[in-house]
Amino acid sequence: MQPAPNTEALDEHLRVVIQALHGAVSRAMPHVKDDPKTADQAIADCKEILDEVIEGKVSEWLK
C-alpha cells in the first residue's frame, strides 16, 4: 500500500506542534497564581501555535 504523500512529514510536524502546546501548558499551569507573567506568556505561545494550526497552510509547514 502506497501511503499518501507527506503522511509521515505531516505526522512528525504535528507531533512537534502538540509537544510544544503541552509543554507550554504544563510549565504554566502550576504557576498561574505565583507567576502570572509565565502563564500569560504560555497562553500567548499557545495562541500563536494554534492560530497557525487553524490557518492550516500545510504546504508551508512541510517546506
Binding site: 504535528l14 504554566a28 498561574v32 499557545c46 494554534l50
Partner: peptide
C-alpha cells in the same frame, strides 16, 4: 488563566486526535 490553559490543552489533544 487556568481556563485559558485548559482550552489550549483541549485544543492540543484534539489536534493530536486529528494527527
Amino acid at each position: 488563566k487556568v481556563d485559558q490553559l485548559i482550552v489550549a490543552r483541549t485544543a492540543a489533544e484534539e489536534v493530536d486526535h486529528f494527527r
